[in-house]
Amino acid sequence: MQTKYNTVKQAIKSKILDGTFQPHQKINSESELMKQFNVSRHTVRLAIGELVSQGWLYREQGAGTFCADRSKEETVSQVKNQKNIAIITTYISDYIFPSIIRGAESYLSEHGYHVSLFSTNNDHENERRFLEKILTQHFEGVIIEPTRSAISNPNINYYLNLERQNIPYIMINAYYDELEPLSITLDDEKGGQIQAEHLIDLGHKNIVGFFKNDDIQGTKRMKGYLKAHRANQLPINPNNIVTYKTEEKATKPFEELEKLLSLSNGDRPTAIVCYNDQLAVALLDVLRQKNLRVPEDISIVGFDDSFLAEVSEVKLTTISHPLTKMGEKAAEVILELVKDVNGNPNKSKDAIESIVFEPELVIRNSTRKLE
């Protein structure tokens, strides 16, 4: 359990790292900190004393305690820590992420850079901790896969502080829209549209879609699903749109599919589009339990063309994802930004543009034409 003085110390440090306290700005008084954290004056003085000795704060007699200007120290540290790039991803060893990371790590290693990997497990608190570590340890650049990119992010100030400290970053797979960052993404909306249109072209009209809605990829893929129905003048049954959050991914899609499959034959869906291959393969178990054959009784389309698309007995029709190529391109772009920062700190990042990969349909044997 964290000590009281350490809690105060970390809270002040966090406000420095997220830019709340700027260099030479006066921080809260001892009395205010005592009230804020419900601790003694001794505890506050202990926390402040350590931050002063570590160079985070400085005192002026009779005036108070102020945030230190760490820019000179940062310059020295950056020289010591040159050739370090951080990669923050939602997951490291799960699903498509190893391929993306491998692509980035391989390119960076070839160019003499050390890579530090951080996994948020799609949790904002973990993201905050890693951003603080990156701001403290002075990495030259950061490749970031956003955490729950479809909802308001509580860590925006940390990204703004990266910008203030001239630490370049790019986002992969998704992005925080409010920051308008450089990003390397797939056209998820188009991918979702291709998924649904493939099934519509095969004669399916009752298509259920499963979409993870706390990541922007899921909301865009759902938009594509809706667009495909409208373009083909097919009515959209609201019950056929199943959305779920990260913490629900192991339960809600399965429960909802069981409900839909329990409907009478005329109302039961004939096809499924999935947020990703991982979900599609998992839903195959529900279909087996219901003695439904794929694609004879029901068609299913995945997304990402991951290794999972070919490992089960049903080979998935799916949407391609650049995977390794996305990682390589992210590494290439971050090194361009690092070079620009080191060579010309005033050069605008506008000279480098975001990249959007085009999705393609990969047809296997999990879909068939309705007769």
Results as ranks from 00 to 15, higher is better:
157 N>M: 10
124 H>K: 13
137 Q>I: 01
173 N>E: 15
165 Q>D: 07
189 E>L: 12
141 G>V: 07
127 E>Y: 00
133 K>N: 10
142 V>S: 07
140 E>C: 07
120 T>I: 05
171 M>H: 08
110 E>L: 11
126 N>E: 11
174 A>D: 15
100 I>E: 00
219 T>Y: 04
99 S>A: 14
136 T>C: 06
160 L>W: 08
126 N>F: 09
203 G>N: 10
146 P>W: 04
205 K>Q: 15
128 R>H: 08
214 D>E: 10
145 E>G: 00
169 Y>V: 04
106 S>C: 02
141 G>T: 05
138 H>K: 15
147 T>F: 06
142 V>E: 08
156 I>R: 13
102 R>V: 11
130 F>D: 10
121 N>H: 05
121 N>R: 04
181 P>R: 04
222 M>V: 00
197 E>N: 12
140 E>P: 03
159 Y>R: 00
107 Y>N: 06
130 F>L: 01
186 L>G: 01
114 H>C: 11
159 Y>G: 01
160 L>I: 05
118 F>T: 00
146 P>T: 02
168 P>N: 04
194 I>Y: 12
113 Y>H: 15
132 E>P: 03
182 L>V: 05
143 I>T: 03
143 I>N: 09
151 I>E: 13
216 I>F: 13
183 S>M: 12
132 E>T: 10
111 H>W: 07
115 V>K: 02
182 L>Y: 06
126 N>Q: 12
126 N>R: 03
170 I>Q: 03
141 G>Y: 04
131 L>W: 05
124 H>D: 13
121 N>Y: 09
